[in-house]
Design a binder for these strands. Structure first.
Lengths: 212, 212
DNA sequence: CCGCATCCGGGGCGATACTG
DNA sequence: CAGTATCGCCCCGGATGCGG
């Protein structure tokens, strides 16, 4: 990107991450952790492959991303955020919070969706209502690759599903899942509108909104 | 801007404010308040006039900016942020905080600078060390149009200079002012390195860093 | 397959000139 | 003062190729 040539920290930040697609690549590396090139592409649908390669090169040069070859027998190259890259988390959370109202409008006809996008910020806005209870898991899916909430010790974190049986699971349209996770829709209402869920319902209720 | 076509609040936010120059226009309207077209241009140096016009049109259409004709005898048209536009403040603060390290490197050869850019975030990171003392003002300038800090009641706010005599003033290079306001440089050291200041020195010391 | 590089058409951007 | 108009150019988008 052409620099803005302004001695202002906002302009300097945008000189580095203001390019098209750049912040979405950072988002993907934040929610996924270390990821292969192909997995980043899957998580940033719509990006042209040459742009992804070029952006990653710039991000590495700027010190926000590191390229690492995993040792045998796995033998794959992964990209991961450096500490400096992870420091963009507050920026992405602020952006996502500002953009949330647009999510309550129905999604565009051809909008892509990944459960990960929803689960990651949700996990940061929810809290474990029973911090002393044992660890439980809730699986979330909208037809794509499922994500798992791990709930324990007062905290909620997300990780990819490993295929094992969760203590509870939710499945429905993206808006339905958003409604439930944001607390704007209670389970009974959501079920009547098409949400499917199973397992221990109390486990789901253990996820509480943290604050306004 | 082409939409990203992703049902993700970060992508939706970038659909609206991800275009080149857009966030810098928002910054300018945030630090200045209602401003005329020409003043925005001065505050966003480097932008082409057709782009400024187009961005303002989009921002109005998206409901972030309002265009208003001031009543006679002033007779000018001003642009100002709507409530929705002002809600981007946390995003810009987060971005500016992340970009701050780039400011400690020396500015680019042709970097433009406005004292306003520095004073606005500084005011939010500083606090009034003597909340019960009467209102005092500190004028800040780096050769451009000065900005005034108003310090009273525990708070620090910025406003344009109205030409009246401040209780204290600071003048120096952008980096020098940054060093003093960020607390990385004390007044004596800064003076020996070229900072000029006058008036009541205790007034300047009344500005305290609020936290890490 | 994975991780790109190359090619090419279109449109957003940048700079300048011009105008009610 | 508050914008249009115009015109290159380069970035972006989409497709394809290709070595490891």
């Amino acid at each position: 990107m052409r620099t803005y040539r302004q001695y202002c920290s906002i302009a300097k930040a945008l000189d580095v991450v203001g390019d098209r697609w750049t912040l979405l690549i950072i988002r993907e590396l934040l929610v996924r952790g270390p990821a292969r090139y192909t997995d980043i592409r899957e998580g940033v649908p719509g990006i042209a492959t040459n742009l992804l390669a070029e952006r990653l090169r710039e991000l590495i040069r700027e010190g926000l991303v590191r390229r690492r070859d995993t040792p045998p027998p796995v033998a794959a190259t992964v990209f991961e955020l450096t500490e400096r890259g992870r420091e963009l988390e507050p920026v992405l959370l602020a952006l996502g919070r500002w953009g949330a109202p647009y999510m309550y409008e129905s999604p565009g006809q051809e909008d892509q969706f990944r459960s990960r996008w929803l689960a990651w910020p949700a996990a940061m806005l929810l809290t474990d209502g029973e911090p002393d209870a044992p660890l439980v898991t809730v699986e979330l899916s909208a037809g794509d690759e499922p994500v798992v909430f791990e709930i324990s010790g007062g905290r909620i974190q997300t990780r990819p599903s490993d295929g094992s049986e969760p203590d509870a699971w939710l499945r429905g349209t993206p808006q339905m899942l958003l409604g439930v996770l944001s607390g704007r829709l209670d389970l009974a209402t959501a079920r009547s509108e098409g949400l499917e869920f199973g397992g221990d319902e109390r486990v789901i209720r253990r996820m509480q909104p943290v604050a306004a």
